[in-house]
Design a protein around this nucleic acid. Structure first.
Lengths: 255, 255
DNA sequence: CAACGCGGGCGTACGACGTACGCCGCGCGG
DNA sequence: CCGCGCGGCGTACGTCGTACGCCCGCGTTG
């Protein structure tokens, strides 16, 4: 029974904590712990040292508390991560929407990219189904507001958001990998590429992949220049927005 | 020293195995193990039971061999996964390219989606930097061939592929989550949605998110109909291709 | 004012996991 | 016929998440 409850958080349990169904423990009300303090400590750890460093023992340590005390406020690690994610969503800026839909969507994409840059662990934690916390819903509502009036159906609006945010996540993931691979290997991505390039070149030409070799080198040089991931993000974003504008224009013409 | 070698595979080590620098052990040449047998067994396990079930002990078991014997052929788990990934790429179909670039790209996207459906564990394993194995390079070359002649620069071609494949991966991930969440909870996604909908409705309206509520419900009904992820994939793919065609047309006009 | 019980806090322990280390015993080169 | 190199692996260590049950101090109640 305990074996199948592993990677995924128990939805019901998570929801209860996410929406703070439990009243704040009126017990001592002193400097005791709380869900928020636990979550904040956990986010700090994950921000600073990555998701692998996020350990229940470590969270307890950071709070000056025994490991098992953490379980008083959070049913398990999966649920803790779920609350961490929702909390991170909560700290995103939500200024009043400005400009046309394209500018608004672009702004949303950049805000999301910034979020992932600030909390790279989210990219690895969000593998499971998004947990429907209050802040995620607020975010969803806010982002929908940017495109409610451009003539798309409800389902299409959801798909547009999924598409844009999916692209942001992909790009953020690529960028994040570069960063923490540099930290792990102590080598710049460019250095790594350069040191392995001739070696790979041998295999590529041996296997006679001239196209892959040429394009790969060109792309590799971009990466060496350290703005490779950003380029992929920008290029992809413009393409996605272009693609969306095609449907939008089509809908506008039809009416 | 052992602590930092965790999630990521040692590139040099991986490459050596990926390209089979080691000669096939000429020892007994009998029914002994081999890198390929190990990898095949590992893929079978991951396909059937997911990445969490992929354990070094389990691989040894499947091969009728002690756990540590696996380490004779593979330096560690990270490297094993790297070879698994490259092997999976190797089994993709690569028919001669047909049709215009859009049809070709679309075909590529669908082939990649099928790959992820056959090997869902790849979606969780590929978090790290792609390992430059022979089959990945062959795949890259094959996919580049679909767009070499449409007037884009080398860097743009790489970005186009990154964009399309990123979308495929996002969509595949969403679909995969639905599937194995159903397996874990024993509940259809629609059932889960339906059972939690009224509850969420309460919070959404309480927080006054009418848009999120309406659109979320519409999207949720799609999901309940079990073709939600597919719709997101199709919609997004067409948008992405539309977006690419804008640049392609622009380049063609300029020349 | 005293007894109680409840719930935060936590020490210990268990069963996973990846893998370092060092021992076997077989089969081939000398 | 000897020896040694290497495939194979048993054991053990350090890590993780977390189940379980104990303690103790407080708020409530008689």
């Amino acid at each position: 029974m305990a074996s199948e409850r592993k990677a995924t958080a128990d939805p019901a349990r998570s929801l209860a904590i996410l929406w703070r169904t439990r009243e704040p423990t009126s017990r001592s009300a002193g400097p005791g712990l709380s869900v928020d303090r636990v979550v904040r400590a956990a986010i700090d750890i994950a921000d600073a040292e990555g998701l692998d460093a996020l350990t229940m023992r470590r969270v307890g340590e950071a709070l000056g508390v025994g490991t098992m005390s953490v379980y008083t406020y959070v049913p398990g690690k999966a649920e803790l991560v779920a609350v961490m994610i929702d909390t991170a969503y909560g700290e995103m800026p939500r200024p009043a929407v400005e400009g046309d839909w394209r500018a608004r969507l672009e702004r949303i994409a950049r805000d999301n990219l910034a979020l992932y840059q600030r909390h790279p662990w989210m990219l690895r934690a969000e593998t499971t189904r998004p947990v429907l916390g209050p802040h995620l819903i607020a975010k969803y509502d806010y982002e929908l507001a940017a495109i409610v009036d451009i003539g798309l159906s409800d389902v299409e609006m959801d798909a547009v958001l999924t598409l844009v945010l999916g692209h942001v996540k992909s790009a953020a993931r690529a960028a994040s990998e570069v960063v923490d691979l540099e930290r792990e290997t102590g080598m710049t991505d460019g250095q790594w590429w350069q040191s392995h390039a001739p070696w790979l070149e041998t295999f590529m030409t041996a296997g006679s992949y001239p196209t892959a070799s040429r394009v790969g080198t060109a792309a590799g040089e971009q990466h060496g220049g350290a703005y490779g991931p950003e380029y992929a993000f920008e290029f992809g974003l413009q393409r996605v927005l272009d693609g969306i504008s095609v449907v939008v224009a089509e809908r506008a013409a039809r009416r």
